[in-house]
Design a protein around this nucleic acid. Sequence first.
DNA 1: TGTTAGCACTCTGTTAACATGAGTGCTAAC
DNA 2: GTTAGCACTCATGTTAACAGAGTGCTAACA
Lengths: 367, 367
Amino acid sequence: MELDIRKKKILQAIIKNYLETGEPVGSRTISKYTDLELSAATIRNEMADLEEMGYIFQPHTSAGRIPTDAGYRLYVDDMLESRTEELQKESERLHARSEELERREEELLSSEGSIDDRVGHIESVLKDVVKMLAANTNYTSVVSMPQTGRNRLKFVQLTKIDEDKLLCTVVLEGNIVKNEMIRIKEEIDQQMLLRLNLLLNSTLNGLTLQEINFDMAARTAEQAEQYGSLVSEIINHIAATIGSADGIEIFTSGARNIFRYPELSDSMRAGELISTLEEKELLTELMSDEETEDGNRSTGIQVYIGQETSLSSMKDCSMITATYEFEKGVYGKIGIIGPKRMDYEKVVDALNNVTDSLDRKFGKGKK
Amino acid sequence: MELDIRKKKILQAIIKNYLETGEPVGSRTISKYTDLELSAATIRNEMADLEEMGYIFQPHTSAGRIPTDAGYRLYVDDMLESRTEELQKESERLHARSEELERREEELLSSEGSIDDRVGHIESVLKDVVKMLAANTNYTSVVSMPQTGRNRLKFVQLTKIDEDKLLCTVVLEGNIVKNEMIRIKEEIDQQMLLRLNLLLNSTLNGLTLQEINFDMAARTAEQAEQYGSLVSEIINHIAATIGSADGIEIFTSGARNIFRYPELSDSMRAGELISTLEEKELLTELMSDEETEDGNRSTGIQVYIGQETSLSSMKDCSMITATYEFEKGVYGKIGIIGPKRMDYEKVVDALNNVTDSLDRKFGKGKK
DNA sequence: TGTTAGCACTCTGTTAACATGAGTGCTAAC
DNA sequence: GTTAGCACTCATGTTAACAGAGTGCTAACA
């Protein structure tokens, strides 16, 4: 069987209607809803075909039709295609369309000082953005802090805080900073500290977690004379620190929006969803900046429908993510989680706007 | 009317029964449940009295009775009293009783190195603890990072990271560390950086946020000669950093446990609760380490029943918090949120155990 | 005077029967 | 290929009946 234009139009009409109402949609509705001027009976025949092709299904005999994941997929792909075309042709119009949204974002993001304060405040900026996004879309939204690709060490520094405490500051490429307080057994003098700092920096600079191994820790420790054991422990700590930076930090907002959608809000489903949002580890996979080279990568928009996320807790959800650039080569992701019948179009627009703003604010230099 | 022993026993029986079943409890049940050997009719009379006194109420005519907040209060206060007595008399038994619980905690908390790694890992330790607590109690649990009382500045350090970036590391009393990346307009040499560090430390050391005002920023800036404007901006950043440290960091776990309790799990209520758990700001008040000097302060256990939290989202919940000591004088709180009919006794025990473990691990030196 | 048995009354939750309405598939006619 | 008509199915909502649990009250009892 072939998916001709008419079938596609009907499918689109079904989906659009279902997105709006959330109710199974019947042939009569479509007959009136579209400009196809077809009777309900005809539509019924076409719908039977569409069902056979796997794009729609009936929740029970004698109910209207609901899109399947495949149906959504088709719809979304079409939408994304026309969206990117549109984007290329007249990106301004896109902005104008959600003008109000953007105005609010601008307001939120613009607050300049004579020092560029962008780096220190990412966390709060992202929290604000994710909050606003959730409030504007009525879906749950999620953002990940920028992730350094390989987490190369850029700079280490030990500082004496108390007689028995050293502060170990680790800066990774992409200017991710981590601290660790280390308690030491015997006091250490400033002179020695300076030497240790030099030693650590010269040895560890530019290395990734994988490259800091037992062997080199031992060799470095040797050079530190009587502080050998201390140094090797410090290196362990540094490795652990880098490792912990590998865990992506994620913020969520608008979890309660789940309850707006009956298909997600029964105890079981909602509980599972809330869990994954709270524990965040499970979201890591979805929010990590993996390198896929499919067509949509250009706009950075990625759509996961139902099972496509491979998280069982999200089998009734869709998720849309977009990538923003923090520093050159350092990306983070921002996403929206909603019911499968979410307003994909609106969400894609909203995410595009947000990432534009973030890119302007952070990455690609302000306009 | 007087609350004699018999009435108290009946009230206790009602509450105990309600905690177990979650159903309104009737006179017949009590007549059998207690060792008072009274007929249902008698109990009914007493219950009418208890209702008049405001300790119990009927959800509707011809239903059993449910405790009011006042009823719970009475019950909890009695329980806490006997608990602390018991604690003083034979604290070992208490430990033995929840032996299994404690074993798990110990396992979780004990992992020693030759460097004392306690400081760097609080965050992960607390996350583990809160997770375990939620899993063991089947309630939602919450923990706050240690809060420095007044957030005095202990140490500042500027470090050059790139030509145009300084890393500003701020250490507050209680060894809370904060970083901020500052982008500067013109490069600065090491010599000058050293001087700025000295200047900043000598000026700001020991100050709280309140004490860092515009006036002194100006005076300090003067001393920095051509870097005056830079210094005053840096001071602003430092102030902001301290300010942000005032915001308590809170982790939650087991939010989904809300759905175990029907009285919390309808969309409205659950949504509101999830929101306050997600946004955390609202919890700040409850989790901040204010100095009350009521009796229960000794054990650090605090119980909020229903409206007592003053959060409307938690009007159907109870919350129990306990205080743990991180460093001398630096406390954090750990708490449990559940339905009003939660198992107060079990939760108090669990919290006592957890804070004991944390104190042993962090504060009062390992045993 | 405190306690108890008995009884009428109230409210909830469940079940069954029934009507309604939306939607389908199929057939026959256009 | 399209449409009108019709019988059939299924979910939903309403109503009535009924059992069960619990109360308050009264009268009897120790």
